[in-house]
Amino acid sequence: MKISKEIKVETAGLAVDLLAAQVPELSKGRLKDAMNKGAVIWRRGKQQKRLRRAQSPVAAGDLLQLNYDDDLLSRQCEPAVLLADERTFSLWYKPPGMLSQGNEWGDHLSLLRFAEQQLGNRAVFLIHRLDREASGLLLLAHSPKMATTLSQLMQQQQMDKRYQVLVRGKLSQALLEEGVIRQKLDGKACETRFKLCAHQPDANHSLLDIKLISGRKHQIRRHFAAMGHAVMGDPRYGEQNQDPSGLGLQAVELSFQLPGQQKIYHYKLPSELRRYG
């Protein structure tokens, strides 16, 4: 069942009672679960937030947006893993199947929500993203100042981000010698550098080490699909690249230097979390 409905509050009361009256096809139990998982947005003027508590009071003039999808709300995945806590920022392992952040349909399977629950009262800001099907290192900030600093480093290409990617087929010698794809995406310049780690002729796969220079949406997946070497397990781009083990894309290394500091922060995904060793 999938329901998307905006409700204007006419009379003050409790959120779950209003929702139950306006959406009778959902029980209060289902509504409470949906609210807890972030599927209800409350708005008052310019204010907006996810309304999680069923007993939250709402006032006349408030707006409630319910986006209910029982398939999405029932999904589960492995938990994220906190790999490094530097107090003002932290580094996490995002498992496949987990969103980087929530959307209008909920946030129970997002790293941001998971980190909020694990870290208590600390603020959480997303610095970059990984596709839902991908796994690997993801960086979060815990203050507006640090979020701005890290975002600027990312935008100025002063963060070294490395990935391992399993693609279909054997890359030509000419493509390997060039070692870079600069095809524009969405009309914007972007660059993906790569080198061969191993070719598996029996499976007709190639494992690549990737350095991402820019950060366009689905850049790695789109670039290699355009070259005729789609990422294995990618449900969106490429052909004949099905893989029951999932998307063959993992963020494995991250390094950067904060302004005014000598220390270089360098993180590698632990071997036990790596897909390809």
Rank of each mutant, 00 (worst) to 15 (best):
A59S: 14
V81D: 02
Q261A: 06
R275A: 10
D85I: 05
S151E: 03
S27E: 09
M35I: 03
L112V: 15
L185M: 11
S206V: 06
H223G: 07
H223D: 04
M159T: 10
L137M: 04
V165L: 12
M146L: 11
K170R: 15
T149D: 03
G169E: 03
L51V: 09
R132F: 03
D17Q: 12
Q101R: 09
W92M: 05
A115M: 10
K94E: 03
M159G: 05
M154D: 01
F256C: 04
T88P: 00
N103Y: 01
E78P: 05
R132V: 13
Q152R: 13
D209E: 14
L119M: 15
Q101I: 12
G277S: 09
G136D: 06
Q257K: 14
L119G: 07
K184T: 12
F256A: 06
V252Q: 01
E253R: 13
M232A: 04
I7L: 13
A39P: 09
A34Q: 01
V180A: 11
H218K: 04
S90A: 11
Y276I: 07
L207R: 08
Q164I: 02
V165H: 00
K46Y: 11
Q257R: 15
V165S: 09
G260F: 00
N241Q: 12
I41C: 06
G29M: 05
H266L: 00
A141N: 08
H266P: 00
L72A: 13
V58S: 07
M159N: 03
R43I: 07
P201T: 04
P244H: 06
Q118P: 02
R87S: 12
P57E: 08
K170F: 11
V231D: 06
I213L: 10
L126K: 05
V231T: 12
D33R: 11
H142F: 10
N121K: 15
L139R: 08
R236L: 15
R162K: 12
E239H: 15
P235K: 09
E178L: 15
A20G: 12
S90T: 09
V167C: 08
E25G: 11
L150T: 01
R87Y: 03
S214D: 01
Q183P: 00
A251E: 02
A230V: 11
A198V: 09
P79Q: 08
Q55S: 15
K8C: 13
T192S: 13
D160M: 06
Q158N: 10
